[in-house]
């Protein structure tokens, strides 16, 4: 049985999709933020791999085709953005102000936390790009001398966390404007958060997509300055 699962080309994809559907079902039944389909699916896959003694490499041999679609899907984020272009133009000042302060706060937050926990320079620059999309974040971490594997892990944790808490954080801090919601979610939790913003609405999704690109680029510049602080 184990050999069959390890050799199967479709096991990885099927188990990922089915656990996600299971997560959607649970979320519908109990409307709690913690029953986030993505989180449920990640944990369920981990458990299944452990139970059936399938190693990550064999799983990913099939599941990588899901990741493969990520680049074209990111390209498609241009579609909702194009549909909301008018809205973007009319609110460009507010949006840029939000994005600038978001990136600045993100870098400052990591700086303060690193001081509090006495992190080394290497650990500090590893965490600096945590709020931006993986592909840009990896580059930043490498450039500044961070540990790229940990950066990737932290970026994913940030994204999943953002996806889970987005709705509650917006409610708690009275962020009601759909543009503001989208900019907030995209700046804090890149593409994984954007997936949630897409579910919240078209404007939220489009603005969150925009944030992935702009906050990512601003962080490239900002992180190289902040890297000198510790």
């Amino acid at each position: 049985m184990k050999d069959m699962l390890c050799d199967s080309v479709f096991f990885g994809v099927v188990v990922s999709i089915l656990t996600y559907q299971f997560g959607m079902y649970i979320k519908k039944k109990w409307k709690l933020a913690i029953f986030n389909p993505l989180l449920v699916s990640i944990i369920a896959v981990m458990i299944l791999l452990f139970v059936f003694d399938v190693d990550y490499e064999s799983y990913n041999d099939g599941a990588k085709y899901l990741s493969y679609l990520l680049t074209p899907a990111t390209v498609c984020l241009a579609i909702p953005l194009y549909e909301q272009l008018e809205l973007l133009k009319n609110n460009i000042k507010a949006i840029m102000a939000g994005l600038f302060s978001g990136v600045l706060i993100s870098l400052s937050c990591i700086f303060v936390c690193s001081l509090l926990f006495h992190l080394s320079h290497e650990e500090y620059v590893t965490l600096l790009p945590k709020s931006i999309t993986t592909a840009i974040g990896m580059g930043v971490s490498e450039e500044l001398g961070g540990i790229v594997t940990i950066t990737v892990a932290v970026i994913i944790i940030t994204g999943v966390l953002g996806n889970i808490i987005a709705e509650n954080v917006c409610k708690l801090f009275h962020i009601e404007d759909p543009i503001a919601k989208g900019i907030a979610i995209g700046s804090a939790s890149h593409a994984i958060g954007t997936a949630k913003a897409m579910e919240m609405g078209e404007i939220e999704g489009a603005m969150s997509s925009l944030s992935i690109a702009v906050a990512g680029l601003l962080t490239v510049v900002g992180a190289s300055v902040f890297a000198n602080f510790i």
Partner: peptide, 14 residues
């Protein structure tokens, strides 16, 4: 930082 960034960015934009 995820909570702070989300709250501040959303707050400033709004």
């Amino acid at each position: 930082s995820t909570i702070v960034v989300m709250a501040v960015t959303g707050g400033v934009t709004q």
